[in-house]
Design a binder for these strands. Structure first.
Length: 302
DNA sequence: GCACAGGTAGATT
DNA sequence: AATCTACCTGTG
């Protein structure tokens, strides 16, 4: 057995986690589809982008990540990982004591977290998510970043690496033609992105204002955007706004609620209402557990 | 070739 | 208010 971990040699710095994170849980957090700019290479190292952050991450122990910062700071990473939140305690507040299936999901992915992502980026990637698989959404995001995104800098410590690009901001997206967006693989979603870009650029501060509103008010505003319905609004609010009561209902959750809660023939909005009332103010965290379980059952690779 | 994929919007019933 | 359908594009 080798005594040196290859990950440790290429990633110079330790990041000590506030609570243990099993490898399967980390994989679900970074690759489960709450974000689309984390990708794992063949040797198991993750390369991730979020806002100003570009970082390589490997795991050496359940409580230690090996990191190599390419842009942004370690604090940016801690913020993105929501290290300041006690996710074990939050999961304990879910109604698992009276919900055997939920308990099973929590036991399978202990420490599951909701990443903190910039609202604008979250909105963009989830508009792109409509009827696409995670892998394909990630490719759209990568194409948008590569072709139109800003070069990321490492706060002056080293020269900027031109190949490291973040997602384009909405004002930048507003300058792109629909064909340019389609060239990034967006398909019919290009019209939605172009429409939202036009609106947001014509209404500066609208998104930041929305981020300050309570969940139902923010949701009712987001669904007025082209290409943003209840599901994408809920994803934007859960992943980009820390509204943990949001309960996005997609095909996976629909299947989970049919199989394990007997909700046959319920509409999306009925299931969403059931989820918020049954799971309570942290329904979004419960949703991630249910989602992770359901995907694991179906053995999806992407 | 054809169905299907982290949905949404507009038309039809 | 519930139920179709078109919408791009890659993948099996």
């Amino acid at each position: 057995m080798p005594t040196t971990n290859p990950i440790a040699t290429s990633l110079p710095r330790d990041l000590h986690l506030s609570q243990p994170l099993p490898a399967a849980t980390l994989t679900e957090i970074l690759g489960g589809g709450q974000c689309f700019r984390w990708r794992r290479n063949a040797s198991g190292v993750w390369l991730g982008f979020s806002g100003p952050l570009a970082v390589e991450v490997g795991q050496s122990t359940p409580t230690t990540l090996k990191i190599g910062l390419l842009a942004g700071s370690a604090n940016d990473l801690r913020h993105h990982l929501a290290e300041d939140v006690d996710w074990i305690a939050l999961a304990d507040q879910l109604p698992w004591r009276t919900d055997p299936h939920l308990k099973r999901c929590i036991d399978a992915f202990p420490g599951l977290r909701i990443l903190r992502q910039p609202l604008g980026e979250t909105l963009l990637t989830f508009i792109c998510s409509a009827t696409k698989r995670i892998e394909q959404i990630a490719r759209m995001a990568e194409a948008l970043a590569t072709r139109h995104g800003p070069v990321l800098h490492n706060s002056g410590r080293s020269p900027a690496t031109p190949s490291l690009r973040g997602l384009p901001a909405w004002p930048m997206l507003a300058t792109l033609s629909e064909p340019q967006l389609r060239a990034c693989g967006l398909g019919f979603r290009a019209r939605h992105v172009a429409g939202v870009a036009r609106f947001l650029t014509a209404h500066p501060g609208w998104l930041e204002e929305t981020a300050r509103l309570d969940y139902p008010t923010a949701r009712s505003r987001l669904v007025t955007l082209p290409g943003v319905g209840p599901k994408i609004a809920d994803c934007a609010l859960l992943f980009g706004c820390a509204h943990l009561e949001a309960f996005p209902v997609d095909v996976w959750i629909l299947r989970a609620m049919r199989r394990h809660y007997g909700l046959n023939n319920w509409s999306d909005s009925q299931v969403a209402h059931f989820g918020r009332t049954h799971f309570g103010p942290l329904a979004g965290l419960a949703q991630q557990y249910l989602f992770a379980w359901e995907r694991a059952q179906t053995h999806v690779s992407c």
